[in-house]
């Protein structure tokens, strides 16, 4: 079966467009909007629901992302070389993925409920935030649906995305997308991939950028930071006086 035009657009063009937006957008945002680079925490307004929803959502999502990295980046033959059979992988990935996905989805549900019902938090929600929530929830819901439909209730082995989606994903990075691999992918996965691509394109322009400021260097620096006022004065590059204009 030949690859249709819409499949070329969805699997061959959209990923590159959104990735370009993602990278260039992040660079642009970092250069021109360091001040806006935050997620505008609303913990000041409401603490109880956040305490429950936020860790649930974030930790769930971290495991979901790790699962995606393993599933998409590591070829089947590599895990096989470690003696992990397809069954073991399928059960492990489905169980852990479902738990992490449910945690993230529950957390997101609590957070969205909180955002809608707490007056001050709702007032602090921009249209940009709302769009982002729709897309983010869409990605997770579509992913959850695909997992439940094809992995949990899809027979003993489920749908083996590691034969199709994984190699296709890696072929994208080789700048030689092999669309024949993915043309027969179930609709649920297609929807998940499309919304995910949109999410990556939107990412730099939403509050999601805070994911890229995870403060890992905190564990390595000395506690108290000293800084000279002269280092950061004005926009000029500091030169010595005798070096000429």
């Amino acid at each position: 079966m030949a690859v249709s035009t819409w499949q070329v657009l969805v699997f061959g063009v959209l990923p590159y467009v959104s990735f370009a937006l993602f990278v260039l957008g992040l660079i642009w945002r970092y250069r021109y909007d360091k001040f806006g680079w935050t997620t505008r925490s609303s913990e000041l307004h409401e603490r109880r629901l956040l305490r429950l929803g936020s860790p649930l959502f974030h930790f769930g999502l971290i495991f979901v992302i790790l699962g995606h990295v393993v599933g998409l980046v590591i070829p089947k033959s590599w895990t096989g070389a470690f003696g992990i059979t397809a069954e073991m992988y399928h059960i492990g990935a489905t169980v852990m993925g479902t738990i992490a996905g449910v945690a993230a989805l529950t957390g997101l549900g609590i957070l969205i409920y909180r955002r809608r019902t707490t007056g001050a938090v709702f007032r602090a929600t921009t249209r940009n935030d709302k769009l982002m929530y729709v897309v983010l929830a869409g990605v997770i819901l579509a992913g959850m649906y695909a997992t439940i439909r094809h992995q949990v209730f899809g027979g003993s082995h489920g749908y083996d995305y590691r034969e199709t989606v994984g190699p296709w994903f890696r072929s994208l990075w080789m700048l030689d997308p092999d669309l024949t691999l993915i043309q027969d992918v179930p609709v649920a996965f297609t929807i998940h991939i499309v919304i995910a691509s949109i999410l990556f394109g939107l990412w730099p322009f939403t509050r999601l950028v805070h994911a890229f400021s995870a403060p890992v260097t905190y564990t390595m620096r000395p506690y108290v930071v000293y800084r000279s006022r002269d280092e950061h004065r004005g926009s000029r590059v500091q030169r010595r006086g005798w070096e000429g204009p």
Binding site: P215, R221, Y223, V224, V225, Y226, R227, R229
Partner: peptide, 13 residues
């Protein structure tokens, strides 16, 4: 300053 994960807070030398 010691609590700031980002290193954004500082004491002017």
């Amino acid at each position: 300053v010691a609590s700031c994960p980002s290193g954004a807070m500082y004491k002017r030398a």
